[in-house]
């Protein structure tokens, strides 16, 4: 991972903060979900950049290659992506139903409807 220096981490942290900030600051539920996705994706990048080895080939056996990238983080992240998709789907489904039953997906408007939320 020396090829990237620490820049990959800088970018990842930047993305992470953007994501978290969106989750916290936006009042629109869908925007919150988008923020959540950005946040999760930054973590996916984190894992994938872990697996990168400079000068290595893809992790499939082939002639003349001795150094392979680590495939495990990719496998893990594949699973995590699936989880992320599922979470997003559930979140969107909830937003749709919230819109149907409350008529809005703006959090502050939801709060004015019911203070206990």
């Amino acid at each position: 991972m020396s090829g990237l220096g620490v820049w990959n981490y800088v970018i990842i942290i930047f993305l992470m903060m953007i994501g978290l900030y969106m989750v916290m600051s936006s009042s629109n539920l869908v925007k919150k979900l988008i923020g959540l996705n950005v946040f999760q994706t930054s973590v996916f990048f984190l894992y994938i950049s872990f697996g990168y080895i400079e000068g290595a080939t893809g992790p499939v056996m082939q002639e003349g290659a001795s150094l392979y990238s680590n495939p495990l983080p990719h496998v893990l992240i594949l699973t995590a992506i699936v989880v992320g998709v599922a979470t997003t789907a559930v979140g969107l489904a909830l937003s749709v139903r919230i819109k149907e039953s409350f008529g809005t997906i703006e959090e502050d408007e939801l709060h004015t409807m019911d203070s206990s939320l």
């Binding site: 946040f39 999760q40 979470t87 559930v90 979140g91 937003s95 039953s101 409350f102 939801l110 939320l117």
Partner: peptide, 24 residues
Amino acid sequence: DRRALTASFSYLIMGTIGATFYLI
């Protein structure tokens, strides 16, 4: 209760953040 939806949504946000922290 329709508030179940918003409850579930905020749990989703918090839960996912928690799980992602764990993942990090």
